[in-house]
Simulated scan of single mutants.
Amino acid sequence: MILGILSDTHKKVGRAKKAIDMLLENGAEYLIHAGDIGKEEVLAYMESTRVPYTAVLGNNDRKLVPLKERYHLFTEPHYFCIGDLNVKLMHHPWFLSPDADLIVFGHTHKFSLECRTAGQLFLNPGEVCARNKPVSEAVLLKVLKDAWEVTHCQRRIKETTWHYNKKICERVVEHV
C-alpha cells in the first residue's frame, strides 16, 4: 500500500493540485491531508481523484467546518484504519502518543520523521504551501510488511521537477 501524505496547503490550490497529482503519479492509493487545507477546492480535488482520502481540520480551517458531512473531513485527533494499518491523524502536534501504527501531523510546516523501536512511525510531511521556504513538500509512504519506506518529495516553486529522498524504517507488526 502506498499512501500520499500532505499538509498545510493553506490557500495555495495550484500547489496542492500539483502535489496531489505527483503523489498519484507515483502510485498513491490513499491520500491523507493533515490540515490547514484552506480552501474547499483542495477537498473537491481530492474527492475528484476517486482515490480514498481522509483529512483533518487545522487551526486555519474554520470556514471548512460546515463541509465535514460533504467530504472525508474530521476534527483532530482522528483515528481510522487503512486495511490492517491503524492511523492517527491530526494537525497540531499535541497528541503525539504512540497509540497507533502511523501518527501523522502537520502545523509546524517542517518535515519530520521519527521511527520508534516499537514500530510506530511519527510523520509530518512538511508544507505544500511553501510559506516558510521556497519549496513545496509531500510524502509518499510505502507500507511494507516489515518496513516503512518514506519518500520525502520536494519541488522548488516555479520549477516542475520533484526531487525524492527515500528512507527505510523498521516496522514491527504484532501477530495475534
Rank of each mutant, 00 (worst) to 15 (best):
V172H: 09
S48A: 12
H72A: 07
K158L: 10
C129D: 03
K68C: 04
N124P: 05
C169T: 02
V176R: 14
K110Y: 08
P98Q: 01
I2R: 13
C129I: 04
R70A: 11
I32T: 00
P77Y: 01
V56R: 08
P93G: 15
H91N: 12
H109S: 02
K17I: 14
R156Y: 03
E159W: 04
R62T: 11
Y30T: 03
H163V: 00
D21I: 05
L31D: 05
S7A: 11
F111S: 04
T117E: 15
Q154I: 06
H72N: 10
K63S: 15
P66Y: 02
C129K: 06
K142V: 10
A34H: 07
R171G: 11
C153L: 14
K68Q: 15
N26P: 07
V51H: 08
I82L: 10
F122E: 08
K11M: 05
Y79F: 13
L96H: 11
R155K: 07
E47H: 10
A19F: 00
C129M: 07
H91T: 11
P125L: 03
V172C: 04
R156A: 00
I82K: 04
E40S: 07
F105P: 09
I2P: 05
A44L: 11
V42A: 02
L23W: 03
D146E: 15
F122T: 09
I103G: 06
N60V: 05
H175W: 15
V173Y: 11
A28E: 12
W94A: 10
V172E: 10
A130C: 07
P77Q: 00
V176H: 13
E76F: 00
E174K: 14
V56E: 13
L89F: 04
A55P: 12
P125A: 06
T54N: 12
F105T: 07
L113R: 14
L23T: 04
W148T: 14
A28Q: 09
F74I: 00
D8P: 05
L89D: 10
F80Q: 05
P125I: 03
L123M: 13
V143F: 08
K39R: 08
K110E: 13
W94Y: 13
T9G: 01
V51R: 11
P93A: 10
